[in-house]
Design a protein around this nucleic acid. Structure first.
Lengths: 247, 247
DNA sequence: CGAGAAGTTGACGGCGCTCAATGTGGGTGG
DNA sequence: CCACCCACATTGAGCGCCGTCAACTTCTCG
């Protein structure tokens, strides 16, 4: 197909305007002219190889990063070196929001596969946002949405048992993939069991057992990292009454 | 002492300029002229009686609220009506940040005692922030700080046992009170055991037992809601190696 | 002063953690 | 291309922390 495009299309500067996750990312709701001004901030996209860090705790905040291709985990290290995964991030999602607080990154970001991000120089972003109210509003909303997401995680950690947490995790991932045009029923987990466990406040063995339970109920089929959701409604019902004791 | 003030001081319009938590709140780092412009947003302070809601889940976002006097809990309700406390808020802290995401409040805010807040009309705030870069930056930082705080809570929920969580809770509260000029060693809990438990992902009985454990170790003395920290360093050491298994 | 709410403590059981053995798949080098 | 290797995943056995239930005490407030 590429031959129908003018050759120089291959050399177009990295830009939001021609990005596949335009409508999910920072530019949400911006008009054409506004997106073009945002484009001036994206100097060049950056590739991140599987397993390598995009940034680490303590690194000074230079840019926020929009995931373009691939996926990331963000994690904090406890005093004794234990890892706590704080999030998984797929295309169209923003990395580094927690760094604004103290001008340095408060977590690590690792690529779960070969990936690509759009660095957005934060000082420039703030400056541009002064003149683009809708961009500023988007940034506020992005930050607020992360807070809402974290509160849901707290509720998950505080109120759900292991099977419910796993079901919630799978449904959430399914939905986010679906929005991006991927199948909501068939997808591949890019992270290890241990990382899922850390994210959900469980041990990796408990994740394995949870997978077995969901399989035994005919809700999902998971072999290795391949997921097939067989009974979406059943999974959702598992969460409908997420509680420890009936009544 | 009030007689040395001109009488009309009692009638001063509600304003950040003369607020006791000025340097902890939204105006951090703003200069005099900037604070005066921020003042124009605070139409009038609002009193909230103990046990009543400042806002509830689903209420449209009109204002953010800065706590001026007293304290609040924020909480979400799960599908089956179980409460998850997402935070406790004392003077100088902001309420309602999670509402920016969807223009409606994502949690409930209840006063834990007779309290007073400064409503900050959000649309006006965004408008003013366009012209006051440092105000905008403060808002960004406030939002980001909340994200960092939530991530610490996730780490607490994922990696700490019950006694460690309780110690972390007490130390955190102690530190925040200390910054506001209160004693870091003697203070009063404004919330019930059940609310502490919900916040920490534990049952109220477990909180009671945790209190007994800390008491038996001579770290704190808690009778009813009165807390006296007897060994601050000991408490901190309890957290220094926050883990499930030694090694 | 009385009644209801909040807090404390004990007994007991279950969920999820720990430890350990085994299975499996992807990547590398001969 | 295959064999090997190592990281990752799975499953079982046993146990400990914390949840549940219950009885009782203390506090709060009208």
């Amino acid at each position: 197909m590429s031959e129908v495009l003018p050759f120089h299309a291959q050399h177009l500067k990295a830009a939001c305007s021609n990005c596949s996750v335009l409508e999910l990312c920072l530019p949400i709701g911006l008009n054409g002219a506004e997106v073009e001004r945002l484009d001036t901030l994206i100097v060049q996209r950056v590739k991140v190889k599987k397993g390598t860090a995009l940034y680490r705790t303590g690194d000074p905040l230079r840019s926020l990063y929009a995931v373009r291709i691939g996926s990331f985990k963000t994690s904090m290290l406890s005093v004794d070196g234990r890892e706590q995964v704080t999030g998984f991030h797929i295309p169209g999602e923003m990395l580094g929001l927690d760094a604004i607080s103290a001008d340095e990154h408060a977590c690590n970001a690792f690529a779960l596969e070969d990936s690509e991000v759009c660095p957005i120089h934060f000082a420039h972003l703030e400056k541009l946002a002064q003149n683009l109210p809708s961009l500023q509003h988007n940034l506020n909303r992005l930050l607020s949405r992360e807070i809402v997401r974290d509160h849901s995680m707290l509720m998950l950690m505080g109120n759900m048992n292991s099977d419910e947490r796993l079901a919630a995790f799978l449904l959430n991932l399914s939905q986010r993939l679906s929005i991006r045009g991927y199948s909501s029923k068939d997808f591949v987990l890019k992270m290890r069991r241990e990382e899922i466990g850390s994210y959900l406040g469980l041990r990796l063995e408990t994740i394995c057992r949870g997978i077995a339970h969901l399989r035994d109920q005919g809700l999902v089929e998971i072999s290795g990292r391949n997921v097939r959701i067989q009974n979406m409604d059943g999974l959702k019902q598992l969460l409908a009454g997420c509680h420890r004791s009936p009544r």
